Computed example of a mutant assay.
Amino acid sequence: MGAQFSQFFPPRPSFTEADFESQSGNVFIVTGGSSGIGYELVKKLYQKGGNVYIAGRSEDKARAAIREIESAVSTGGKLNFLFLELDDLSSIKASVEEFKKKEKKLNVLWHNAGVSQPPLGSVSKQGYELQLATNCLGPFLLTKLLLPLLERVVWTSSQIVELSAPKGGLVMSELSTPPRDRTRNYINSKTGNLLLAAELARRFGQSHGIISVAVNPGAANTDLFRHTPWMPYVAWPLLYTAEKASNSQFYAGLSSDITAENNGCYIIPWGRISQSMRKDLVDATKQIGDGGTGRAEGFWEFCEEHTKAYV
């Protein structure tokens, strides 16, 4: 329980924007970068000279964020808007092609965007449970299409996985037949992010030199609670600012502590490599031949099957 307590009440961040060098010449995509944790991340990357793409469905919100950041930061890199609808698999390839017209590399892709507990029965354009689609299937397809350009990928998970996921991480039958429980479906999607991070590292870490990690950025009062407006009032003693939570994302995406040796690791607030994840979740990230349960491999194959028509 001590490990969970330290995530609820983390020590001061040891890695902030003051700890990394100029990002001039580096290219980043931050999904959901027009608000919340993503906004703070974009702001600091821009301040360090990065070429940053805010990826999302609303150009108006992204342009407003860009104006705010440019007016608040005297000198910086470059800010761009990239149209992206994660809940519409048929649109993602066009977004990637648009990005490839402008850039030949991608230093870090932050899967920061997400949806939490929308109204029961909410589905994506292709009819998938909305949280599974937006938090897992869309990011999976986006990552696959960007693989030739990628250096590092950060998948946003949550402490709720360690606290509430069923033993083994995922009940695979719930992916095809989602339970009538929006919280359980959210937990499944965040568990999926954890598993995809580990499986991407296993499949492409050595062969392609890609670093892939999952992160619990920490509890922050952001638009993620728009479908549960009561939550900030209940959880306010445990909620922090989006700016503070962005330190976890910084560390996951930029820290030199993360190498080929610990590829696939799990980052906890405000930028630490977890050493005490639940054993059944660790086992879920490993193949059966390596003493694990193969759950990450199975979830990857599920995502591959359900996105192959859009590659």
Rank of each mutant, 00 (worst) to 15 (best):
V73M: 08
K308P: 09
N26W: 15
I54L: 05
R202S: 08
V161R: 04
F81A: 02
V282F: 07
V27G: 09
A296E: 02
I268K: 10
Y233T: 15
L170S: 01
T293C: 01
V108M: 04
G218K: 07
G253D: 02
G32N: 07
S24H: 15
K286G: 12
S246G: 12
V115W: 09
S173A: 11
S91R: 09
A18V: 12
R63H: 12
G205P: 01
K44D: 10
D19R: 03
A62H: 03
T222D: 11
Y266T: 06
L130D: 06
F83Y: 10
T31Q: 06
C303V: 00
S189F: 03
P139N: 07
V311G: 11
G138C: 11
G209I: 09
V282H: 10
N263P: 10
Y53F: 08
W300I: 00
N135D: 05
S274G: 08
S255T: 04
E97W: 13
Y53Q: 05
F204G: 10
K144A: 12
V171P: 15
A65P: 07
S176E: 11
L147M: 08
L137K: 03
G36P: 07
L170G: 01
E304L: 00
P10V: 02
D283M: 12
Q23C: 08
I54W: 05
P217E: 06
T293Y: 02
K190A: 02
L149A: 12
K100W: 09
I29H: 14
E243Y: 13
L200M: 15
G32V: 05
H111Y: 09
K167S: 12
E297V: 15
Q249G: 10
L149V: 11
P11I: 14
C265R: 03
L150A: 03
T143Y: 03
A55G: 05
Y39E: 06
P166G: 09
I37W: 03
A260T: 11
V213L: 07
G264M: 07
F140M: 00
K78I: 11
F99A: 11
D87M: 05
V311W: 13
T177L: 13
K48M: 07
A260N: 14
G294S: 06
A3L: 15
T177M: 14
L86G: 04
I258V: 12
V52P: 00
A201T: 02
R57F: 02
Q117Y: 15
L137P: 05
K308I: 03
E243K: 13
